[in-house]
Design a protein around this nucleic acid. Structure first.
Length: 593
RNA sequence: GGCCCAGUAGUUCAACUGGAUAGAAUAUCAGAUUUCGGCUCUGAGGGUUGGGGGUUCGAAUCCUCCCUGGGUCACCA
């Protein structure tokens, strides 16, 4: 599509230069709507004013010119300001032959000089297991990394783990008081789940103690701050900060349980990382940046010694960067981590932070400060912001225990997929372990697709039932179509790669080719917008087009040979494109299901 | 209250960033098929794009004022 646009643009530009003595080089092309005849459409509305022409007359004139000058344009029609051009079959065949010989169609090669982007996602706390919100985060971040890579960038996947602070101490206290030495090994419970249980336990005990305090006549403030278990947690935090060896040892041990648990969840989700940053290592960083900013007079000190930045000129507020006692705040840490990452990756062009939209303001400020400090890479920072995930039953609130646990959800999706696949009855001939793998792929495909097809900015209403449907705009439908294509190809005769350019194309086939041609630009667009939803929706269009094409079109066993070859080849290309696009979303498409 | 985001068929989402008659799926209804009110197929209805005003050849999209929902305005992370 890109090539034909360039070709036509040159001709139209020449026409205008010749007839009107004007240089216009950008035109609006779009794919012709299916209710009109034609393949590609030139929108002539923007040209009417400079050329002082009526839409019909201009369209007609350009149409005649293109039909004569272009080898690809065989016919045209004009409707108001739309010039619909019919392209020669040979053009499509040539295109199909071209992509048939390209193994990674639509993916740009990654050179050593390609820009390097750091993608941060997941970034959990180590006091509780991952939940549905984390799944959206992981799946989004991982997909964006894949897409950026496909668009020709180098990518480094990372995360920052929030492994310190009062919330970790809460789990530790509860485990010390009520754990009786239980470990993941002794209980068979996944490490993150085990630690999470004690975090919940803390909250229960804390609430009881507050109630007791209130009953004893304390004010609410007193009851909260004087509750024994809370005091204990605070003491633990101080001991941790002082480097108390036994506290640090316990902290290390429990964190490791959590990491082992996370590892399993990531594996099940199919996401991975190239490096890990830990807040316990980075929370003291950033102070040198504060000094730098003070030197450059970008920041200022208040009477009490705290450091601030004034962003009121940019329409934002004043923001605290360093407490009066010299300790760091969240912003300080993030400044430090950012510059640390640059030190670790000097060729870094920019970063993508996958973080929920409740932190929109934080990242606005962070990026602005980094820009003010004059870092080159600060020009290419992007906050991949996403909305909450709601359930039909209502909102997820971690404090109220209505969260959906990630491990549970993955299990549930796999089970539902298994049930559905069994009733469809197409899994005979697969071994037990192959079946288990298949069900996992389908369940996860459903989950990922349901999340990724929605614009990241928007809130999601997640309905587990609806997402596993084999029909409709769902992951399994995409997977099913791919499996069906593979089944067709298994029965197809082997084909020649090079096709006769005189093979006649039917409209339906042209429509799919047109769609196939758009794949590279969809990948590019998704990468520019950091939006896997672009790919997901494209995929669905492609799958639907193929299904309607295939429905009444016998592909196999019908001469003439060249037409048959053409259809088989196209089926194969559609199959490959579906597979490539789905993999960008982290969705596996089985050959059989 | 200030700032940010969202609001599109009953529902869940699209609409190539200003283009043609706003499209799919799902639900509903009507037919067809039939070991099944369950699977499949065909078709239909369903919209003042939250509301008003504006910008222009042309607006779901841009500007403005309201309405609704969410987020954020911490010396938490």
């Amino acid at each position: 599509m890109e090539n034909i646009e360039k070709h036509l643009q040159g001709l139209v530009s020449a026409y205008i230069a010749d007839r009107y003595d004007l240089t216009i080089t950008t035109f609006e092309f779009q794919q012709t709507r299916k209710e009109f005849k034609g393949d590609i459409t030139l929108v002539t509305f923007p040209l009417l004013k400079p050329l002082k022409q009526a839409p019909e007359a201009l369209g007609q004139a350009i149409g005649v010119y293109l039909k004569e000058k272009s080898v690809f344009v065989t016919d045209f029609n004009v409707i108001k300001g739309f010039l619909n051009l019919v392209l020669d079959d040979a053009y499509f065949i040539r295109f199909l032959n071209a992509i048939a010989s390209t193994s990674s169609f639509g993916h740009r090669p990654i050179t050593e000089k390609a820009p390097l982007y750091l993608i941060e996602y997941s970034s959990p706390n180590t006091n509780k297991p991952l939940h549905l919100g984390h799944i959206r985060n992981n799946v989004l971040g991982h997909a964006v990394a894949n897409i950026l890579e496909a668009a020709g960038n180098r990518v480094h996947k990372t995360q920052i783990i929030n492994d310190r602070g009062i919330h970790i101490c809460k789990s530790m206290v509860a485990w010390m008081d009520y754990g009786e030495g239980r470990t993941p090994e002794s209980t068979g419970i996944k490490g993150d789940q085990l630690v999470g249980n004690y975090y919940v336990r803390f909250d229960q005990v804390y609430k009881e103690q507050i109630a007791a305090g209130l009953a004893a006549g304390k004010t609410e403030e007193q009851a909260r701050t004087e509750a024994p278990i809370f005091v204990q947690a605070q003491t633990l935090l101080r001991q941790w900060e002082a480097g108390d060896p036994t506290v640090r040892a316990l902290w290390k041990k429990m964190n490791q349980w959590v990491y082992d648990g996370f590892e399993k969840t990531y594996a099940a989700l199919g996401v991975d990382f190239d490096s890990f940053y830990y807040e316990s290592n980075t929370y003291l960083l950033g102070k040198s940046i504060i000094d730098e900013g003070l030197e450059k007079k970008l920041f200022y000190t208040k009477d009490d010694g705290s450091v601030w930045v004034d962003l009121t000129d940019e329409g934002l507020d004043e923001k605290l960067l360093l407490r009066a006692d010299g300790t760091a705040v969240y912003m300080t840490q993030d400044l430090g981590t950012a510059s640390q990452r640059y030190k670790d990756h000097p060729s870094m062009k920019g970063m993508v932070y996958t973080v929920g939209n409740e932190q929109d303001y934080h990242f606005k400020v962070l990026f602005l400060i980094l820009k003010k400090l004059g870092y080159e890479w600060a020009q290419s920072l992007y906050h991949l912001s996403y909305g909450m995930v709601d359930l039909p039953s209502g909102k997820m609130k971690s404090r109220e225990g209505t969260v959906v646990d990630a491990d549970d959800l993955i299990d549930q999706m796999t089970q539902t997929a298994a049930q559905l696949a069994k009733t469809h009855g197409k899994v005979e001939g697969l071994s037990q372990s192959e079946q288990a793998k298949l069900y996992h792929q389908i369940g996860l495909g459903a989950l990922k697709y349901f999340i990724l097809k929605v614009d990241p900015k928007k809130r999601i209403l997640f309905d587990p039932e609806a997402s596993v449907d084999f029909n409709g705009n769902t992951g399994p439908f995409i997977q099913y179509t791919h499996a069906r294509i593979q089944s067709i190809l298994r029965k197809a005769p082997s084909i020649e790669k090079v096709l006769d350019e005189t093979v006649p194309l039917e409209e339906r086939e042209k429509a799919i080719l047109n769609l196939l041609m758009q794949y590279p630009s969809m990948v590019k667009q998704a990468a520019e917008q950091y939006s896997p939803a672009v790919i997901a929706n494209y995929l669905y269009d492609l799958v639907r087009a193929f299904n309607s094409f295939y429905q009444n079109t016998p592909i196999l066993g019908v001469p003439p040979q060249s037409v048959q070859d053409f259809r088989v080849l196209m089926t194969q290309k559609v199959g490959e494109t579906i597979k490539n696009a789905a993999l960008l979303l982290g969705i596996h498409v089985p050959d059989q299901m």
